[in-house]
Design a protein around this nucleic acid. Structure first.
Length: 434
DNA sequence: TCTGGGGTCCTAGGACCC
DNA sequence: TCTGGGGTCCTAGGACCC
């Protein structure tokens, strides 16, 4: 086992005002201007430039609710372009990953990376070098926060971003302060800025007199568990430098896949909903295949406009189990449309609908499970055939043979035995899963 | 008039089983 | 009046994140 450094040093790097910065890469004339990027249907502001924040535009604020005075001060609002953002994200992540083998891509614009190795000075230098490389190569400004745990790294990133400590140059590490200064800085940060503390928790914590990050760090763990949950207790631990959240450097596959949209205009007819749901279901199946999973159930939902409080509300949802786990668009779409048929009621103004694929499992697990349904002698023959393939071609071929089904694998093996020199193209065997 | 689209984890409560 | 004790699985709902 390699030696574990006594002090973990985890860095969180993220792009500043990411979507806005992406737009500026391609339209430099937007630099210095108050800019926002809008959600789907141009509904809400989902990213704001510093200038837009200074004008008072709030995160998630609906465009139509932004006061005219602000709009008249040159505010520029752009529709979102996710293809562009994810492309720039990929490039940024690649550069981040070059610094260390241990990288967890946490969201479209942020990564945790491990900088435990070496001195603090060296880690700081690495972080600064990374920032300038990203800005040179891609044009996206970033900030880096460094701490002993993920929660501390997040909080350090906040310090860097808001320049709470002077002369940071976009990089801040808790380690560079003594204990008294750490406390002093944490005392100035409101508790709601701590990762995992949202609006609700902030209210409740404040009513208990826990108002700053420092207060939460010093809070009693047992009380937090009892009054709230183990999640908040873990946050307390993390603030105290005790790691509860590991750095996940392999991206785990999704446990559920959602595809949904708000409609620009409300719809009433079943046909219109069916058209949308068909699209969501096949898009979901596509995402499913991308991560090589199969779904055991399809959840379909629709909802009326929750903001139109005077209109009748209806938010039906139904879970349709699939008889066998699948990634097949047709099966999934059929299940989704069946769900719609069950809950559809005329006379409502539907504003949004969606399809969620749940009960996901990896395709390979499922196919291994299928063996339990085979009879023994058949199963033995298959295993013998595959052992032979395995010893000859290695594990990858075994995987291919499994996905090819019993008959195909066995007969291919027979052909090989009969005519030496004949090599099966395993990857080309048609998939014959029941 | 106009109000995003994804995800995660935890908890509580009911059904069911032995 | 009072009615076991555990376990699992499922669902709904809440809170959080970006």
């Amino acid at each position: 086992m390699s030696s574990i450094p006594s002090k973990r040093r985890i860095a969180l790097i993220d792009g500043n005002n990411f979507y806005c910065s992406c737009e500026r890469v391609f339209q430099p004339k937007l630099n210095g201007r108050p800019l926002i990027v809008l959600s789907n249907n141009d509904g809400c502001a989902v990213s704001r430039s510093n200038e837009a924040k200074a004008l008072g535009v709030k995160m998630g604020q609906p465009l139509f609710k932004i006061p005219a005075e602000i709009k008249h001060q040159g505010l520029i609002a752009l529709s979102s372009n996710y293809a562009l953002y994810s492309d720039l994200s990929n490039r940024m992540m690649r550069i981040m990953g070059e610094v260390t083998p241990r990288q967890e891509i946490y969201s479209i614009d942020e990564s945790f990376i491990d900088l435990s190795h070496g001195s603090l000075a060296r880690s700081l230098a690495t972080a600064k070098e990374l920032r300038s490389r990203i800005v040179r190569a891609i044009g996206i400004p970033t900030c880096v926060g460094i701490g002993a745990t993920k929660t501390l790294a997040k909080l350090a990133n906040h310090v860097a971003k808001k320049s709470i400590v002077p002369d940071l140059d976009g990089v801040f590490a808790w380690e560079s302060l003594n204990e008294a200064d750490v406390s002093a800085v944490m005392a100035t940060i409101t508790v709601g800025e701590v990762w995992g503390v949202g609006r609700r928790l902030t209210e409740q914590l404040q009513s208990m007199g826990i108002c700053s990050a420092l207060d939460l760090k010093r809070a009693d763990r047992a009380t937090m568990t009892k009054r709230f949950s183990v999640v908040l207790a873990r946050t307390v631990d993390e603030l105290n430098g005790e790691a509860c959240l590991v750095l996940d450097d392999v991206t785990p596959s999704k446990q559920q896949i959602m595809t949904s949209r708000s409609f620009g205009q409300t719809v009433t007819e079943q046909d219109q909903l069916a058209a949308a749901i068909t699209k969501f279901a096949s898009r979901g199946a596509e995402k499913l295949r991308q991560q090589r999973s199969v779904a055991n159930a399809v959840q379909v939902f629709a909802m009326t406009n929750r903001f139109a409080v005077d209109e009748p509300q209806y938010t039906p949802s139904i879970l349709v189990p699939l008889s066998i786990a699948t990634d097949d668009s047709m099966r999934i779409t059929r299940a989704a449309l069946y769900g719609l048929k069950c809950f559809y009621r005329p006379g409502f103004q539907y504003k949004k609908a969606g399809v969620m694929l749940t009960g996901l499992e990896s395709r390979r697990d499922r196919q291994l499970d299928l063996f339990s349904t085979y009879d023994e002698s058949r199963s033995n023959r298959l295993m013998a055939a595959m052992d032979a393939v395995n010893s000859r071609y290695g594990r990858d071929t075994l995987r291919l043979a499994i996905t090819s089904g019993t008959g195909a694998a066995a007969s291919a093996m027979r052909r090989e035995r009969k005519s030496p020199g004949y090599t099966t193209q395993w990857g080309e065997i048609p998939v014959a899963v029941c």
